[in-house]
Simulated scan of single mutants.
Amino acid sequence: MVVVLGLTALVTVMLCAFALPSAKGAPHDVPVGVTGPQQVTRVMEQKLAGDAWDVRVYDGPEQLRSAIRDRDVAGGLAVTPGGIDVYTATAGGPSATGALTALGTQLAAQRHAEPTVHDLVPFTADDPRGAGLTAALLPMIFGGIFPAVILGRVFPGHRGLRARLAGVLAFAVVAGAAVAAFLQYGTGTLDGDYVVTAAGLALGMAALASVVIGLQALFGGVGLGIGGAVMMLLGNPLSGLATGPHWLPAGWALLGQLLPPGASGSLLRANGFFDGTGAARPALTLAVWVVAGIGLVVLADLRGRRRGAEDAVAAPERAEAVTV
């Protein structure tokens, strides 16, 4: 009965994780800046009040543009005598960009003006839709799970535990460099600093792989299955890599950013398009996961050593009993 209830709960969570991004895909507290005459910005604040937008007023267009590049807001609207300027950062979240552009068009129509869209942080010319960025998520997840499975067979048992941990960390470094090279030089998806981007990808894979290795060492196949399921079935749909995290309900968006896939995607976006702006939080999140994974491995190692010592003490006693 416990197994049935557990599986039912797992299926329910999976359904929520995969269905919510589609069923509830809409702006949720998207930080957006506005600037213009005080009377106009007040009206805009009233019109945008609600759960969709988090409105912030700026003194002028230059301050608004700086806030967008610094990732304080996802985009903004500047009301000028000639109409409305819409400032976006498509690489920071294409769905929010589309919604903000539509909003700017609507507000401009009410003023009988034409909106002018300025994409301050676009995707690259070689990959204008950011398809490579979205496609990078599954390789990052598999890059954390597959090494744990393969190295578990090559170096089984307690004796192979340290070799497995060293192996996944080494693989994360090599795979991070390879994925970054492909995205930057193969598809042209990224245009940031290659070394920084590769280091971020390596950190993300190490975070995922070390936790899976630790769970496997402590709980065997069950731990491996749970770790893989959480990262794949929750981390993948809740990562927000394709749309941006503000396209999910607040609680689910937060959960997605706390899991390695979501944090890895945010770090990749920050390093690949914003020169590292906004990278501190996802990098810290991934570092905590790495420490947690290594901690699990240490616990498994201590448990294995204790069992080995107990077996060594019990062996002479068993031999003496057989001799008698």
Rank of each mutant, 00 (worst) to 15 (best):
219 F>T: 11
185 Y>E: 13
226 I>H: 06
118 H>Y: 03
234 L>H: 02
120 L>Q: 01
246 H>E: 13
141 I>T: 05
211 V>W: 04
134 T>V: 13
170 A>I: 04
151 L>W: 01
179 V>Q: 11
141 I>Q: 09
180 A>N: 07
192 G>N: 08
247 W>L: 00
257 Q>M: 14
193 D>F: 00
199 A>W: 03
209 A>V: 02
209 A>T: 04
120 L>K: 00
125 A>D: 06
148 A>Y: 02
128 P>G: 07
235 G>C: 05
218 L>E: 10
190 L>A: 10
187 T>R: 10
230 V>W: 00
216 Q>E: 15
210 S>C: 10
211 V>L: 09
244 G>N: 11
162 R>N: 15
133 L>V: 08
179 V>P: 01
246 H>N: 15
234 L>Q: 02
197 T>H: 12
215 L>W: 00
220 G>A: 04
177 A>E: 10
220 G>T: 04
156 P>F: 03
202 A>R: 01
232 M>D: 01
154 V>T: 13
196 V>F: 08
217 A>K: 15
184 Q>F: 04
250 A>Y: 01
180 A>P: 07
208 L>V: 01
214 G>L: 03
236 N>W: 06
199 A>M: 07
224 L>I: 02
206 A>Q: 04
251 G>V: 05
145 I>W: 05
130 G>Q: 07
200 G>K: 05
163 A>E: 11
221 G>L: 08
174 V>H: 02
210 S>D: 07
254 L>E: 15
223 G>P: 01
189 T>C: 06
247 W>S: 11
120 L>R: 01
150 I>A: 15
185 Y>D: 13
213 I>P: 10
133 L>H: 11
242 A>D: 13
124 T>W: 11
185 Y>S: 15
224 L>A: 07
169 L>Q: 12
202 A>E: 05
249 P>A: 05
202 A>L: 02
168 V>E: 15
144 G>M: 05
198 A>L: 07
236 N>I: 00
119 D>Y: 01
165 L>E: 12
221 G>M: 08
226 I>L: 12
150 I>T: 06
145 I>S: 00
203 L>S: 14
183 L>I: 03
216 Q>P: 03
126 D>R: 09
167 G>M: 02
144 G>P: 13
174 V>Q: 02
116 T>R: 14
243 T>E: 15
230 V>Q: 00
141 I>S: 14
165 L>K: 09
123 F>L: 00
122 P>L: 06
226 I>R: 09
161 L>V: 06
142 F>W: 09
147 P>M: 03
171 F>E: 08
153 R>G: 14
242 A>Q: 11
200 G>M: 06
202 A>D: 04
133 L>G: 12
144 G>Q: 10
184 Q>V: 07
250 A>E: 05
170 A>Q: 06
249 P>D: 09
202 A>S: 13
116 T>G: 09
171 F>C: 03
125 A>L: 08
255 L>W: 10
